[in-house]
């Protein structure tokens, strides 16, 4: 299949991962402030609250993806070969999203209005990620001038989600192996995000009970 032959499938291949991502970031933000009672009165590893939010959403995500696989079969695609790589990619996305969730969870404790800014940020990110449109659209309209084109492209591709979404689409919609660059970015971002998330969280988790 190519281009926009089946827009529904095309959309869902990217929309489901996107929904999961934004769900984890939002859920992570509320995980600490929403459980202030627990944090102030009992001792347990605080990151579990964010991890739990992320894990719960992952279950939903898995079910949704299973339904998508069924739909692909109905539309005459055989996705069996791509199930395992997709699962790996889902785990990588989960790691990436959870890392960011940890950062924003702490941020929301210190600045209670972070949630509003993140909501706006996610909105922008949604359109900056090729979820509802094909990535070729961006590549095609890039200006002719080489310098300008370089700027726009590097800005656009600096968004890690572009790579995650493209990887999902490659696997499920195009039934192709993502490019090496995409794989490298996806794995690298997952590790970096988790490292950052844990570092920020451990740095600030000691004072959570006082700040809440």
């Amino acid at each position: 299949m190519d281009g926009l032959q089946n827009y529904t499938l095309f959309l869902l291949c990217a929309l489901l991962p996107w929904n999961y991502f934004s769900g984890v970031v939002n859920g992570g933000m509320g995980a600490l402030t929403g459980n202030a009672n627990l944090i102030k009165k009992t001792a347990f590893p605080r990151q579990h609250l964010v991890l739990a939010a992320s894990a719960a959403l992952f279950v939903t995500f898995t079910i949704e993806m299973a339904v998508l696989l069924l739909a692909l079969v109905v539309f005459g695609v055989n996705p069996l070969l791509w199930i395992v790589p997709t699962l790996v990619l889902m785990v990588l996305l989960a790691v990436f999203a959870t890392g960011l969730g940890l950062v924003f969870a702490v941020a929301n404790v210190y600045f209670r209005d972070s949630a509003h800014f993140v909501a706006i940020g996610l909105q922008v990110l949604f359109y900056a990620t090729p979820v509802i449109y094909p990535i070729t659209l961006v590549q095609d309209v890039s200006p002719d001038s080489l310098v300008a084109r370089f700027h726009i492209d590097s800005l656009y591709f600096a968004n890690p989600l572009v790579h995650y979404v493209e990887a999902f689409r490659d696997l499920l919609y195009e039934q192709a192996v993502p490019s090496l660059t995409t794989i490298a970015v996806v794995v690298g971002c997952a590790i970096a995000s988790l490292w950052l998330g844990l570092a920020v969280f451990n740095r600030f988790s000691g004072r959570l009970a006082e700040e809440l």
Binding site: N35, N37, L38, K40, K41, T42, A43
Partner: peptide, 14 residues
């Protein structure tokens, strides 16, 4: 192994 009961509520979810 510690079990602590601090203040009212003790970490209940209302």
């Amino acid at each position: 192994r510690v079990s602590a009961l601090l203040e009212l509520g003790a970490g209940f979810h209302p």
